[in-house]
Amino acid sequence: MIDPASIPQLNKHFRLQWEEAQDCYVLLYPEGMVKLNESAGLILSYVDGVKTVANIIAELTERFPQVDSIASDIEEFMATASAQRWVAFS
């Protein structure tokens, strides 16, 4: 379970980048690239090493009020991102 007060930070060995040709965000790392789906890319683009998980949930809820499952989507993604070592929490 991810603590909402924890601060996610992108692993310094990964680079998040918008790729026009693929029309999506990608994560770049040594000799590899993960193509992110729309919501994963969007959530990661809010990860800046300053905002807490709760801050990110609040900002995205405000931006997309019509989407009900935002909080659980973000928590689920954070768990995946942590397991993949894309982000670490402090």
Binding site: Q17, E19, E20, A21, Q22, V26, L28, E31, G32, M33
Partner: peptide, 8 residues
């Protein structure tokens, strides 16, 4: 320009 992102 064509979209290559990884470079070795």
């Amino acid at each position: 320009q064509m979209g290559a992102a990884q470079l070795g």
